[in-house]
Structures are given as C-alpha cells and as structure tokens.
C-alpha cells in the first residue's frame, strides 16, 4: 500500500510559489493498492488527478471505477467533485462511501452541482454512473478492508477511515480529527503503520480557535503516541502557511522532545509515501 496526497490544504486552496513543497490544493488523498483507485476526500486536489486520468479515458477508452470516501461535507473536503473530470464521462463509475444515510450523503454533495453555483443541474444528472453507499461496520474495497469511526466533531458528522491490506499493512486517515480525546479513534489507529491526522493549528492557535473544533498538531501527535502508530503524516495545512512556516513548525516540534521516538512529518502534495 502507498499513499499519495493530491491536496493537503485546509479551508481554501493556497496556490503559490511559497507552497510548492507542501502543496496548495484542498484535501484529497489517494490510497494506492493494486489497480484500485481509492480516494479519501474530493477537495480541489482531486481535479489534478482527474486531469491525469483524461488521457487514458479519452485515448485508451479506459473505464475507471473510482472509490471515494467522504469524511465530512466541509467544502475543502468535497469541492473538487464537480470539477473531477472523470465525472463528465459515461464510462466512469464513481462509488462514494460514508457511514451517513444515502439521502444525507446525496444532499451533502448535491449542493456542489446546484445550477446557481455551477453550470450543472444535479449530481445524478452527471454523465458518470455515481453510486452512493452507506457504510456498515466493515467493507471490502479494491482488496482492502475498510473500517471507520466518528471523529466527534460537534458541528457536523465527520469520520476517520482505516484501510488494511491482506498482507497486514494499515493506514488510518482522519485529518479532520477534533481536539478532545477520542478513544474510538485511538483504538482504530492502534498500531497503524501510517496515520494521517490534522495539522491546521498549533496548540496556541487551537486555544484561540476552539470553536473550530480541530485538533492542534501537538494533540494529533499525542493521539498517535497513545495509539502506538508507527508513523504520522500531518495534513490539512492552514492556507496561510508557507513552506518555510511549516519547516519552522516542524523543527520546533522535533526539538520539543514531547513526542518521544514518534516518527512524524508534514504531508507533501505529489510525494508518494510507502506505508511500510
């Protein structure tokens, strides 16, 4: 299993020469395993993947099955969907998963296709075949076992997902994790090879923005230590953070020695991360 971030940014895209390393698109992460195309989130980052698939869709007439897990309906987690080019082709089949009721999932995404906000009419009028699934306890997708937990955000239902491969590799993606301790997420992340958590705020920013509900970098790393995760990638970067700011924050966290031997880094767009 490998991971590739197509979008790492929270709230709003940050295209800039100052964000070249860590990335400027809103959230989208690809789980690479065999031939399966699995995404967590469909922020604007997804559109760059869509552009790359075009050649195979048009010239090779390749029909793609694309699996998308939705963690919540915050714009930055979904807003790329109407601009994800495979959705313009009848040959594509999008499978969209969440533990929410299918009608809620449809409604939460369909607003993106509202004809006043977009040149489209509705999600179910797009050329691609779009199937929605309400996740039960466990699911098998593209050879991976998928489980979820709620992320305990009070303002809106949000979910973290765990992907296990048959050869024992595991990835947990929960970049919208909340600041308060979440026992279910710690349990889901137990001994995960790679754990993706949120890094929107520093602890000082977290205290000043508690109503936003996102964990600080420090709280995310402490959660990873409790879960005994093997490696952490912090994503969901603040839109105003330049590459140099992220490097400075990282150096401070490393120097603090609060996180023992925990291996962690800040997620970079386009970099492919080996799970093991």
């Amino acid at each position: 299993m490998k991971l590739k971030f197509w979008g790492t940014r929270a709230l709003i895209s940050s295209p800039s020469k100052d964000t070249k390393v860590y990335g400027g698109n809103t959230g989208c992460l690809q789980i690479i395993y065999d031939d399966a195309l699995i995404l967590v989130g469909s922020g604007y980052g997804a559109t760059n993947l869509g552009e790359e698939l075009m050649d195979r869709i048009i010239r090779e007439k390749k029909a793609f099955n694309i699996h998308i897990f939705i963690s919540n309906f915050h714009w930055d987690h979904i807003q790329g969907l109407p601009f994800f080019q495979p959705i313009y082709f009848k040959s594509s089949h999008l499978h969209i998963y969440s533990p929410m009721a299918k009608s809620d999932l449809y409604e939460g995404l369909n607003v993106l296709f509202n004809e006043s906000y977009s040149p489209f009419e509705a999600l179910n009028k797009m050329p691609a075949n779009v199937s929605l699934y309400q996740m039960q306890e466990e699911l098998a997708v593209g050879g991976l076992k998928v489980r979820y937990v709620p992320l305990d955000r009070s303002e809106t239902p949000s979910f973290g997902y765990r992907f296990d491969s048959p050869n024992g590799e595991s990835v947990v993606v929960a970049s919208a994790n909340a600041g308060e301790e979440n026992k279910a997420l710690i349990q889901l992340s137990s001994e995960a090879d790679l754990l993706v958590l949120g890094g929107l705020f520093t602890e000082a920013e977290y205290k000043a923005n508690k109503a936003w509900g996102f964990a600080s970098l420090e709280r995310s790393l402490k959660l990873a230590m409790q879960a005994k995760a093997h490696k952490v990638l912090l994503s969901h970067h603040h839109p105003l953070r330049r590459d140099s700011d992220i490097v400075a924050i990282k150096e401070k966290l490393v120097a603090s020695k609060d996180f023992g031997h925990l291996e962690f880094d800040f997620a970079q767009e386009q970099t492919i991360y080996e799970v093991l």
Binding site: R9, I12, S13, S14, P15, S16, K17, T19, K20, G23, G24, N25, Y44, T47, N48, Q79, G80, F83, E269
Partner: peptide, 18 residues
C-alpha cells in the same frame, strides 16, 4: 486570475492559481 476552480501545480504558478 484563474477560471473554473483554483488550482495549484508547479507549471502554472507564474500566472497564479487563485
């Protein structure tokens, strides 16, 4: 200056992606 959606790719940051 960008149409349709903001985008970030190294090949287009000269003119900007917002």
């Amino acid at each position: 200056v960008r149409g349709s959606r903001p985008t970030h790719k190294n090949s287009l940051l000269g003119y900007g992606g917002n």
